[in-house]
Amino acid sequence: MELDELEEVFVVLTLPKKSLKPLLKFRRKIAKKYNLYPDGNYPELHITLNRIKDDSVDTGIEIVNNLANLTEEVRISIENFKCFNVKDDFLVLEVNKTESLVKLADKLNEKLTKKGISTIDNYDEWQFHITLISNLFAKNPIPKSNLNNLCVALDGFPQSIYTQTKAIEIWKPTLDPDEKVITSIKL
Rank of each mutant, 00 (worst) to 15 (best):
N50T: 01
N50M: 07
N50Y: 12
R51C: 06
R51V: 03
K53G: 04
D54M: 14
D54C: 15
D55N: 15
D55H: 14
S56W: 05
S56Q: 13
V57P: 07
V57A: 09
D58F: 13
D58K: 15
D58V: 07
T59L: 15
I61D: 12
E62N: 13
E62V: 01
I63E: 00
I63M: 02
I63Q: 01
I63A: 05
N65V: 02
N65E: 13
N66D: 11
N66G: 13
N66C: 11
L67R: 10
N69H: 15
L70Y: 08
T71A: 10
T71K: 04
T71P: 08
T71S: 14
E73A: 12
E73G: 14
S77K: 15
I78S: 06
E79F: 11
E79G: 09
K82R: 14
N85K: 10
N85G: 14
V86S: 08
K87R: 14
K87Q: 12
K87V: 13
D89V: 02
D89C: 03
F90T: 02
L91T: 01
L91R: 02
V92W: 03
L93P: 00
L93C: 08
E94H: 02
V95W: 01
V95T: 03
V95S: 03
N96G: 08
N96I: 01
K97S: 15
K97L: 09
E99A: 11
S100R: 00
L101D: 11
L101C: 06
K103Y: 08
L104A: 03
A105I: 00
D106S: 12
K107A: 13
K107E: 12
L108M: 04
N109Q: 14
E110R: 15
E110C: 15
L112Y: 04
T113Q: 14
K114M: 09
K114H: 14
K115V: 03
I117G: 09
I117T: 01
I117S: 09
I117E: 08
S118G: 05
N122M: 04
D124K: 11
W126D: 05
Q127A: 06
F128M: 02
H129K: 01
H129F: 11
I130Y: 04
L132N: 00
I133A: 05
I133Y: 06
I133F: 09
N135Y: 10
L136H: 12
L136N: 10
L136M: 07
F137N: 02
A138K: 11
K139Q: 12
K139G: 07
K139L: 12
P141K: 00
P143L: 09
P143F: 04
K144Y: 09
